[in-house]
Amino acid sequence: MTATSATAPTDHSHRFHTIVTTVENKPGVLARVAGLFARRGFNIESLAVAPTADERFSRITFTVDVASSSLEQVVKQLDKLINVVEISELSPTESVERELMLVTVDVAAGRRHELLELVDDFRAYVLDANQSQMMLSLAARPGRLDEFEEHLRDFGIVQLQRTGRVALPSLDS
């Protein structure tokens, strides 16, 4: 999986829309999609791409900032790409979104317990640890990741990587 992360947006519900595209799993398809965004002046907030259960196709999940571009134009222009097979827009209320964060934080000996409680609260995991640092992972709603990140600042974030969100429609939508 390749992914890029952005600085944590605070309000996802209106400005940022999630577009899920099924594309042919061929070399250069990601470049076509990314090139289209650049050429048409659209802003990608986050992007995640990986093969689907059917290896002929990949799924690319974008978050686009619709304050800077027309969502309709983004979708129509994407649809013109020959390798794009299907496009759907997922509204936050009718989909399930998840994002993964890996983060290394400083933790003084006296605060380890406090950090582990936070890990428990958020249902995060400890992936690695040494005398002075811990590496944690959390897969959750993007907003939940923002909150977790906020708490961790207090400890001191050494390195942080988010994947960009992936999404599927809710079962009853």
Partner: peptide
């Protein structure tokens, strides 16, 4: 060539 012509073709193939 395919990279250069990506944005000026309807489609291209290698």
């Amino acid at each position: 060539t395919t990279g250069i012509t990506l944005s000026v073709t309807k489609h291209n193939f290698l």
